[in-house]
């Protein structure tokens, strides 16, 4: 139970009308900020939180594991992310 992935029925896509990533799920739309979208793009069930933080660290400055975990916890509450 350490690798996050998007729950069944949740889709992350890019909306060119709004020029932003959007999370689509039954009866809902969420607009994640750029950081959250970058985290979610790596939530494919193959990366642990630490790996996600490392890979984001290569792209952004000052990425901390606890920040990534915090983002994921919020999406877990919203039933967007689950753990495998």
């Amino acid at each position: 139970m350490v690798k996050p992935r998007l729950r069944t029925g949740v889709r992350l896509t890019f909306d060119r009308v709004r020029d932003t990533h959007v999370l689509l799920f039954p009866e809902g739309v969420l607009v994640p900020n750029a950081t959250a979208a970058a985290v979610l793009e790596l939530c494919d069930g193959s990366n642990e939180v630490g790996e996600i933080a490392d890979r984001l660290g290569a792209r952004f400055r000052g990425v901390r594991v606890e920040d990534v975990a915090g983002v994921l916890a919020r999406f877990e509450d919203r039933r967007v992310v689950e753990w495998t």
Binding site: D15, V17, L24, E27, G28, V29
Partner: peptide, 8 residues
């Protein structure tokens, strides 16, 4: 609808 921004 999609051109207009519809996502659902």
């Amino acid at each position: 609808a999609r051109d207009l921004g519809v996502l659902q």
